[in-house]
Design a protein around this nucleic acid. Structure first.
Lengths: 204, 204
DNA sequence: CGGCGTTTTGAGAGAGCTCAACATCGGTGG
DNA sequence: CCACCGATGTTGAGCTCTCTCAAAACGCCG
């Protein structure tokens, strides 16, 4: 569901190493302790990564959506260490581990690019996690807005639905609607279609 | 505050490239748009990473604690893209960018190890974020416990205080105490000193 | 012993969740 | 072109869970 810049670069350069694969709802992509064959990019649908506890219950680790890369760590591990199944019909792109690692050796710039992508994603993820530490819905929304403005530093272009944004923020969509309303009433934002514009709040 | 395995390896091998630096509370580590000199490992204290919004307010991106690495993305960027200051007196270890990148070229295994570390951290972070999507305190705690058991699959060794755990889970410490009490009363866990043991809940 | 931080329990309030109803918007097919 | 359908968007009302504020017990260290 996220989409850091730089991802595209990687995919364009390494896509030739990849193979597409459709995935039916419920289908298994890989299982824990399977030999780690490579990493996957989700193109459509959703894939759930999970472990099984001693009682056989699924403990969800991550639900990956379009644009997400999964199992990067398997590049440096002999086996996968969780299960992956499609939540809904999906299409994934498979990048064979051996080809990727060979490419990294052949072309250090590719390795750098991959590292850079990981590092950027890490940063973005830390920011998202930090945001979740903010208890108030309003403050959480404002944090998101402040960190996702375009070049003008004021305009946020919404890319998904409001429901998607609510999920990203860890709020119900109802709570998000109300919060946006309050912010608008308070004059802190304006809401042209498909965008949210931060209004100037007077400095101290 | 986290501490994925594999980190140690990296630090041992690359530590010779690093330099220690004490940091007084409030002291600036780097500023946005400063030339990216390298990455930092927090050894003590806390460092806050943030941006300034148009009104000059700090928007927190991340608060890093002991064991955390910050500014990894700066290895692949000309400048830092946020500010970093010490929240409390701190000590950091500085890894110069040029030395790290040179080492990666000289020894591809070092590059792999660094990549592996980033990938593992990414995975751990996704899991933590996913956990925050769980609304109920009890379910969130159980998710944490299920994913942090030792070799026996049942025993969780607490490394910090309960307050630390509460912060990790995004709960107040009071809420966590109560939740643990309920889980214990319900017979789902036992709490020997410094540990939490998951009890067998009968399979279906 | 004294002080500080953690652990623990209590009581109350409030924020966000849940459930529900309705509006709106695209898309689809008759 | 319109009726219909599903998904998204929007608003309402009530309730529950967690937060907040308070206070006390406990443990550790100087």
């Amino acid at each position: 569901m996220s989409n850091p810049t730089g991802r595209e670069w990687l995919l364009l350069n390494l896509r030739k190493l990849a193979r597409e694969r459709p995935l039916a709802r419920g289908e298994v992509l890989f299982r824990k302790d399977d030999v780690a064959a490579g990493i996957y990019e989700i193109e459509q649908g959703q894939v759930r990564l999970f472990r099984l506890d001693p009682e056989g219950r699924e403990i969800v680790l991550h639900v990956a959506g379009p644009g997400d890369l999964i199992a990067e760590a398997s590049l440096f591990s002999a086996v996968y260490n969780c299960d992956a199944t499609a939540v809904a019909d999906a299409r994934v792109r498979f990048y064979p581990k051996s080809a990727l690692l060979a490419e990294f050796r052949r072309d250090p710039a590719a390795a750098d690019a991959f590292m850079a992508m990981l590092a950027r994603e890490l940063m973005a993820l830390r920011t998202r996690l930090e945001r979740r530490n903010i208890r108030s819905a309003s403050a959480r929304v404002q944090n998101y807005l402040a960190l996702n403005t375009g070049a003008d530093g004021r305009t946020v272009t919404l890319q998904g639905t409001i429901k998607d944004l609510a999920a990203e923020l860890g709020l119900t969509h109802e709570a998000l609607y109300r919060t946006l309303n309050k912010l608008e009433s308070a004059g802190k934002i304006a809401r042209p279609k498909g965008k949210i514009v931060l209004k100037n709040t007077a400095p101290i």
